[in-house]
Structure formats: C-alpha cells, structure tokens
Write a protein that binds this DNA or RNA. Structure first.
Lengths: 247, 247
DNA sequence: CGCGGAATACTTGTATGCAAGTATCCACCC
DNA sequence: GGGTGGATACTTGCATACAAGTATTCCGCG
C-alpha cells in the first residue's frame, strides 16, 4: 500500500498560489458565514466523495495554506470531523482520513435499515401525488445513469430516501441516518462505476415505491431490507479490490 | 423567565481563584489527554445533568477563566457541542445552552424505540445467564431508588439499555441512540424527582426482561414501545411546569 | 419625562506565536 | 555492513493578540 503522499487537494482549484491575502477570507466570511463551517463542509464533502482517500494523511498547516486560511478554523473543522469519526487525530503525530471501518458500516446498515423500515410503516398509505413525486425522482435517476452522471445519481439517491422519511413524518431521523452512514457512503462510492449494479438499485427503488403505493407493508419492508443490505454485502470483494482502505 | 445571569459554574469547585498558572493544565494534559476533550466532556455532562440549564447563556471567556484554560480548547469543545445540538452559537452575539427542542425529543423517541425494537429481535432467545445479568441491574436500580440515589438510578438505566443492545450484537447502535437522545435525557432529569414514576419504570424493565426471557417478541416489542414513549408523553405537563426550558 | 444617538463594553471569529512531543534521517561508531 | 545515537524537521495542542460586529447603556436634547 502506497501512502498517497501529503498532498491534500481539497478544492478542485487548490493551491491557488501563495497569493491569498486573508482579506478574501474576511470577504467570504461576510457573505457566506463562518470560514470554519466552510472548511468543515469542504472537508466533509471531500472525504465522502473520496477526493480525500481513506488512510490519507492530512496536515493542518498544509490544509490551511491550500485553503488560504489560518490553522484555527481548520483545527475546529478537524475537531468536528474527528467527532464524527471521519478523521483520526493522534496528538503530536498526525491526522489521517479514517479508513472505512467495517464495524461502522455494519452499524450504519442496521440503523438505516431499522429506521427506514420503521418509517415506511408511517408513510403508507401513499397519496397518488406523493407516489408520483417519488417516481419522478427515480426517473431522473434513470436519466442520470444514461447520461453517465454518477454524481447526479448519487444525489438523487439521497433525495429519494430523504423524501420517504419526510413523507413518513420522521424527517429528523434522516439527519441521524445521514450522520451514521458516512463510512457506508464511501463504500458505495467505490462500487459506483458498476453500472449494472446501479441499474439493479434503480429497479429496487421502483419495487419499493410499488409496494408503498399499493400499501403492502410486508413487501415494502422485505424490499427495503434487501436494498439496505446490498452494498454492505460486497465488503469482501471491495476489501480485496481496495486494500488499505478498510479496517 | 429570568435569565440565570452569566455564571457558568461547570465544575463543582469552580472559580478556584485566579491562581491557575497554566502549568497545571499542561500537567493535566500529560496524564489525562487533551484539555479540549476534558472541557467537552465536562460541558456535555453539565448540560445533560442540567447543571447548565436550558437557555442559559455561556461565555467562552468566562468559561475559560473558570476552567483555568485558554479560550482555544473551550472554543473547540463548543464547536463540537454545537454540532451535537447542545448549544446554540450566534456569531458576534453569544452562545446559549440549547433549549429542549420537542421536535428533537420526538425524533429521539422514534429512533430509540425503533432501534431498540429492532435490536431485541436479535437478542432473543436470552440465555439464563444474560437474563440474570439484566435482573441484577434492575435489582440495583431498585436499591438505588430506595436509597434515594437518583443519580445512580440514572446511570443504571443507561447501563441496562446498553446491555440489551450489546446482547443483541448491535452495541454500536447504542452509541448513536445516546447521541440523539440528549434532549430526551434532559427531559428525564426534569421528571426524576417523581418517585412513583421511577417505580413504574422499574416495573416496566422487569416486564421487558420477562418477555425477552420467555422469547415472547411481540410482547417485548409492545412493552419497549410503551417504555420509550413514557417520558415524551409528559411533554405538556413539563412544558407547563418549566416554562422557558422548551421550544 | 420620553426619545435619539454615540460611546462603550461585551460577544464570537480569526491569525499568529510558542510549547511539547514524535518520527525520521543522517552521521558516527563498532 | 549493521547498529546506535543525536540533531532535525515535522506534527498537533495551547495561549494570546487582534479584528469585526452587536447589544447595551448613558448622556444629551427636545
């Protein structure tokens, strides 16, 4: 396993030269909010999107330089990320992007599956309008797949499941699910190039909405459980194809 | 509603004079770990234990002075607390302990109930030894109640439910539950003086273990749901008795 | 007495400097 | 050549100083 060398590269146009007079930071802060939050979100998105790879070492100093800010907001962001389990900080040694811990993946699967099953029971019966809304998201997923827009597919997948939670009246639970499934999401990214699998996923979505629409709770539950377990089931294969990414 | 005036009082022996030569901090750090973590845990425990009241204003400066540290670790701790929804930070205005948001209480109830029901299905059948272990915890709860040790009762309650999760093989899910139910925990603290209610809770625990031991999943599920919904059901009464604590 | 405005005293956000510890690398010795 | 020791270059943790903004308070005025 070759350590990817310390080159963080968070933002697409990173390393925008040494010219970042800190005033632009203040400007950004005025309009957009706290720089600390921005750094947090950037890092979060970079990790979830595998632009920062599992196990990759991070450096507060270098990160601060690349983003054109001081170490302080970077440190706060990293502290929050560490709390969420996305980075591992070893005092006086270094910080690394956390590897994908299979234990947490399994935990996320259990939580996601349990909560989604519990939610769908409060979502049925589904109104015709709501069902149509879900169908439309699935249709857009299909188009994204055809266009090769895997990123778009991913976002729509999130949107679909969030929508189901919202319809059940437990939208808040989706926030919790999202927080716990970061490791699982990274695993999903790894299997993303598999177009055949994506097609299957879309078919499963259709099947779930079918069951919800017809009010068949038992079938919906069975299909949701199968759906939630699909990616975690590939752990063996993925661990073989991506050594060093897992723990 | 009278704002409790800015006197944080986190540690029991707070305000230990202006004599805290910062070296003691380093000493503490050497043995105990990062001061940032200590501050985080102290604040966390203070909020959960209602020593810091809902809505109470906090001041980074004052907090740092009382704890004998600088603002930096306090800020990191507060950032993490804000992420967990325990404090509300308004830039350039102030920080307050978050009020008990009933929406989050309801969300926590849903999550706790759903996950515990899902877990118990993987916990049965319960071995005799495991059942005895749970019984022993309940017995200690009874003793704590008799001794008037409400704090001890609280800890044992946590221990019992954690144990059930552990027996189900989903101990990791307990961590998530604990993170989401902070608001709910504060509500439980408010009803803590009600000895009759506590006795009922203990009886419910007995009933749940009974059902688990006999392998009666349906009954166990029904009892767990009733148990999880007990405190949230008191929201109206509590909101009346403690105005200003809720939102 | 009521109202307006400016100075003031707070707040959090950011940048920077220093301290302490660890891993690495290179020279030196056996 | 192999092993050992020390200097060095990193790392993160903490403290402090400064910046920017907001709420308050108090004084002056009508």
């Amino acid at each position: 396993m070759t350590p990817p060398a310390r080159s963080n590269e968070v933002s697409g146009s990173a390393a925008d030269g040494p010219r970042t007079p800190a005033l632009s930071v203040i400007e950004r802060a005025r309009r957009g909010g706290r720089t600390s939050d921005k750094v947090f979100e950037q890092l979060m998105e970079a990790i979830r999107g595998l632009r920062l790879l599992p196990g990759q070492p991070l450096s507060e100093t270098e990160l601060a330089r690349e983003l054109g800010v001081s170490r302080t907001p970077v440190r706060e962001a990293i502290a929050r990320l560490a709390d969420a389990g996305l980075v591992d900080v070893v005092p006086q040694v270094g910080t690394t992007v956390s590897v994908i811990r299979l234990a947490e993946v399994e935990e996320a699967r259990f939580i996601r599956e349990s909560l989604e099953v519990a939610a769908l029971k409060d979502a049925v019966p589904l109104s015709a309008a709501d069902a149509a809304g879900l169908r439309e998201v699935i249709e857009r997923q299909r188009k994204a797949l055809d266009a090769g827009d895997l990123e778009g597919f991913f976002g729509l997948d999130e949107a679909l499941h969030e929508r189901i939670f919202t319809l059940s009246g437990h939208r808040g639970a989706w926030t919790t699910v999202q927080r716990t499934k970061v490791h699982l999401d990274r695993m999903r990214r790894l299997v993303l190039p598999d177009r055949a699998l994506i097609a299957e996923v879309i078919a499963e979505h259709d099947g779930i909405v079918d069951a919800l629409e017809s009010g068949d709770v038992a079938t919906a539950e069975r299909r949701v459980r199968a759906h939630a377990g699909r990616v975690p089931h590939l752990k063996g294969e993925l661990q073989r194809d991506f050594p060093g990414y897992f723990a």
